[in-house]
Nucleic acid binder design. Sequence first.
RNA 1: CGGGGCGUAGCGCAGUUUGGUAGCGCGCUUGGUUCGGGACCAAGAGGCCGCAGGUUCAAAUCCUGUCGCUCCGACCA
Length: 483
Amino acid sequence: MGRREKEFVREITSQEADYSQWYLDVVLKAQLMDYSPVKGCMVIRPYGFALWENIQQGLDRRIKDTGHKNAYFPLFIPESLLQKEAEHVEGFAPEVAWVTHGGSEKLAERLVVRPTSETIICEMYSRWIQSWRDLPVLINQWCNVVRWEKVTRPFLRTSEFLWQEGHTAHRNEEEAEAETLLMLDVYRDFAENDLAVPVIPGRKTENEKFAGALRTYTIEALMSDGKALQAGTSHNLGEHFARVFDITYLDKDGTLKYVWQTSWGASTRLIGAVIMVHGDDRGLALPPKIAPVQAVLVPIAPKQARETVLRRAQALFSELKEAGVRLELDDREEYSAGWKFNEWEMKGVPLRIELGPRDLESGQAVLVRRDTGEKVTAPLAGLGGKVAALLLEIQANMLEKARRFREENTSCTDDYGEFKRIIEERRGLIVSHWCGDSECELAVKEETKATIRCLPFRPEGPPGRCLRCGSQSGTVAYFARAY
RNA sequence: CGGGGCGUAGCGCAGUUUGGUAGCGCGCUUGGUUCGGGACCAAGAGGCCGCAGGUUCAAAUCCUGUCGCUCCGACCA
């Protein structure tokens, strides 16, 4: 980037200089969030929340299309409920917030502020489920959860965050497993098609799985600094919770059986993924499908032509709005055109439409893409179609670009020395053979800070030797340093 | 939870070493000129120097404590 270009983005630290600071500059200056008086908690500002609402819409539609219904369960969970599943408590106890008083009265039983809702939902399912005819139960809820984190980062890890959590109950393992994988694929589809974030679906190791789950599946994304981010998880809970919460049903054959359950969730962390996959030194870059503002119309209005240009801009604005584009008209007089260009780029708006006196003379508008910086002119007649087409192209290009980046930053090796070198110098994802032993996994983590992000469903290539211990292995794992 | 860095105007910082009337740039307000990649002139407003104690005639400055943000490690969506 030349010096001239740097001047435009003087408000944002460059990724190269300090990636973490870049991220913080972007979330603050694009006004996605602000810090709050409560440690670890953030305020999601209107622009950030609009982004979240678009994410919600895309996910909610898919969740409903796969037969689930939304419901709402309480924020507070009695301590005794949380205690029931041993692994689950152990996993979450260190980071729960407790309610000990109601007004000035001490509570007979402490309440936890939900860190996740398995327990309270199981409590209800045990009442609701009696017969095989009651199954499957397919419920989702959108809510906030609280996990008392020691180290927080906006969107990536906050003490309170927003998410959806699906909780289902099924007759048997087969159905539960199918549901678990179906929802993982819903997340994959959403991440790729709406967020333009390519992901690697796979299974978590025993060490990395959800507290209380039988199996955990994940979609993993690669950020532009070479670190991986878990972008959504889907758990097959087996009969673990059913046994302790006594969720049983009378099956067709007349015997009483435990249900098989699943749970799956995706959170405001997805916003962090979008920022770190697509953002650059100019700031945010949002894929059109979730961008709160898909295109901004900037009139260039010198004094002599102001009236004419503004009138025409207004008309174009209404026309494009009607065509279904999420559009903003920036006719603020106190800012110069150039200032606006930079601000909207920082906010990640996918497309800018410039309309000035010269354009009016030639009956066209100037369109500038956020993803490539490419500038094209298009006739005013039928501009709606052109804009819609460009937005689709931008969406596709952003996914393609992210995919290319991920491919260029995925290495394959079974050589531990090389593995260490890659992790230190280049980072990214590393596909290596793994013997399946937890000891090797933990040793690699200890020695390189890289963890197994997931075990892919379709391991490619021939068998090899475990990265760490060298024993024969047909299993490959994706390793990376992670957020 | 351990180690480092930072808290002074909305934002970015100087001032702290050596205690003595709180400063700069950007932004903000008003008026005017401007508008095709962060325009310009003029006049203004804005501070319990993170918070609480202490030392002192006097504290942004020295001491103690505390809170917050941040980076690096151990735990997590």
